[in-house]
């Protein structure tokens, strides 16, 4: 995925300022920064939820957000920070909705659901509505939803929020798997130590600007940057 000179203005505030970066195939990039640095806004801009005022976002050198938004969207999966689940759909119906939206065959969907649901210990909750689940369980449901499609790009906003330790470990293993399958993953997090062994690249945002980027090995630099 290529993000070129993207600027996002909401109201009279410029939340994302001229950001450019490349997310190569099979790479996990950690997007770090203080609260309000623009991390979530950048993900939402890539998703098209927030409209960018300037710049280009292209997936696989072909799918431009401006030229063919529907085809572009088909190639991104997004895990939001707060679950966006519908109160009128059960857990299984959410999985079906995702499966259908991303064109998964029913057998493939059922196999994946079976595996992820066992991994996240949600087997007994398939016919429950989200409001009957705890916050952590809702987060697990939303996580599974985002992991169901095999899209070239996966955007994850604070992946470990509300998850227990076992679920976090399981999610990390799944992200590793996706990475090996060639998915480009951009994730925001405050838990830098958790992503240290997961991400190969990082980007540091401050006030909507890209301050620093490079290899995750320069972890100390990130810490100094975020502690400033």
């Amino acid at each position: 995925m290529a993000v070129q000179s993207v600027t996002t203005v909401i109201g009279d505030k410029t939340l994302i300022k001229d950001i450019t970066f490349q997310l190569p195939k099979g790479t996990v990039m950690a997007l770090v920064g203080h609260n309000g640095a623009g991390k979530s806004t950048l993900l939402k801009t890539i998703m098209g939820i927030e409209k960018k005022n300037h710049g280009k976002i292209i997936i696989q050198d072909t799918y431009d957000q401006d030229d063919n938004f529907l085809a572009f969207k088909q190639r991104i999966s997004y895990l939001p920070e707060e679950p966006l689940l519908l109160t009128e759909l059960t857990v299984m119906q959410h999985f079906q909705l995702y499966g259908m939206a991303y064109g998964l065959e029913e057998d493939e969907l059922l196999d994946k659901v079976d595996r992820y649901v066992k991994g996240f210990e949600l087997t007994a909750k398939m016919d429950e509505y989200p409001d009957a689940l705890s916050k952590g369980m809702r987060q697990k449901v939303q996580t599974i939803c985002a992991l169901l499609p095999d899209t070239p790009v996966l955007l994850i906003d604070e992946p470990f929020m509300g998850l227990d330790v076992f679920a976090m470990d399981y999610l990390i293993s799944l992200i590793h798997e996706k990475k090996q399958d060639g998915t480009s993953i951009l994730l925001t997090t405050h838990q830098l130590d958790r992503v240290k062994h997961l991400a190969s690249q990082y980007m540091l945002l401050t006030d909507g600007m890209l301050i620093n980027q490079g290899s995750i090995q320069d972890f100390d630099t990130i810490q100094r940057g975020t502690n400033q």
């Binding site: 519908l86 109160t87 009128e88 119906q93 079906q96 259908m100 029913e106 016919d127 509505y129």
Partner: peptide, 29 residues
């Protein structure tokens, strides 16, 4: 307000895996 039919067993069943039934529910919601 949540639908008064929400807790019917039929409503909780997985969809027929086809767009029509999922879209219908999304429009209704």
């Amino acid at each position: 307000k949540l639908s008064i039919f929400r807790n019917l067993t039929r409503r909780k069943k997985p969809f027929q895996y086809e767009e029509k039934s999922i879209h219908h529910r999304l429009w209704a919601i």
